[in-house]
Design a protein around this nucleic acid. Sequence first.
DNA 1: TAAACATTACGAACCGTCTCGTATTGAATT
DNA 2: AATTCAATACGAGACGGTTCGTAATGTTTA
Lengths: 197, 197
Amino acid sequence: MLVLMETQRAARGRARSEVSRQAVLAAATQIIGTDGYAALSIERIARESGVGKQTVYRWWPTKADVVMEALLHKVEVNIPIPDTGSLEADLRQFLTTSLRFGRMSQVVELLRALAAEAQLNPDFAERFRATFVDHRRAALTTILTRDEGRRPAPVRTSTLVDVVFGVIWYRLLILPTEFDDDLVTELVTLLTPTGDQ
Amino acid sequence: MLVLMETQRAARGRARSEVSRQAVLAAATQIIGTDGYAALSIERIARESGVGKQTVYRWWPTKADVVMEALLHKVEVNIPIPDTGSLEADLRQFLTTSLRFGRMSQVVELLRALAAEAQLNPDFAERFRATFVDHRRAALTTILTRDEGRRPAPVRTSTLVDVVFGVIWYRLLILPTEFDDDLVTELVTLLTPTGDQ
DNA sequence: TAAACATTACGAACCGTCTCGTATTGAATT
DNA sequence: AATTCAATACGAGACGGTTCGTAATGTTTA
């Protein structure tokens, strides 16, 4: 559900319209999908969702928050945390799933949009980190530290996490190249202690 | 110099004002430094540099191109390509210099601005890659392939480049953490063939 | 009856283009 | 050598258009 809290609230007056909420998220996703994030505006979200402009402003601080809420729903569906017993296998599966997610063209646009907005708006950057980035880091950290004793750790776990998400974000935001499946193997090679040491 | 070409041209008419060019770059840098990239507009660059609006539009396609020109000057000064004869030493020096550069607060703001604009404006993204990103990749690739025979390459050189710049950009754009010097050692450890294999 | 709703209007900021008169440059003409 | 001319850059600022975020209005619903 993601939203809500204020369990206390009196709930007097008219309740929030779930229909409007869904309509806003759908409209935003569709606008970005067809015309890109640059074409997204709250005016247009309101127009194309059939919702009042003030309603959007009432529930979301910025248009990027609308996008983030739309994206989070997709994340929750698509990326589980594997636990096969083998570090290599878990890592391979997590990376495969993540890269597949990062290949979905609708998703790429949303991720780019959020990263861009985070550069321009420090308040949103804070929410973005707390809500999205840390969630992803925690998942990978869980995998990497599961049998911690085994890895002699010349490299901090947090740095390994930086490497993985670094490559992913770099290729989403800076380079125009798509992910290929060899990348999974290469990353596992780099992250995994190679036998002897 | 960066500009010029058209060596052929008659050069009739008034010459471009170097004073105005410098004033524009300085004003842009200063606005971003104090109020952030979100506050940057061509109107304001013109106003605060004491330059006509049309003059800015004449020489730069977008405000991001102004920022990129300002940044490139800093890069050329600060990051040489080392050649000590040792892969490890070259790598260590390159990373140290690059991270030091990426710690300069003025620089961080400019890099963030360029990355953000590249997400929003595909035309600029093209110029950004061709002018800045590829330049940096080429430098690191030179180092990594200098004694190519020695590395058996279970991992493509281009992927290693992705890892390095991935971590750097990730920590500039997504995370709020600063670079520490241990990161250099860790990256060298990950990128360098560990003795036996 | 209170709060969310859709609608509409508003001022502020910035965009990109345009025009004005002036300044600077090289080439052509005296 | 002195003058004129054409080309181009310059600062200044007006222009119509767009989007922003907020506010005011009456309507609908729990």
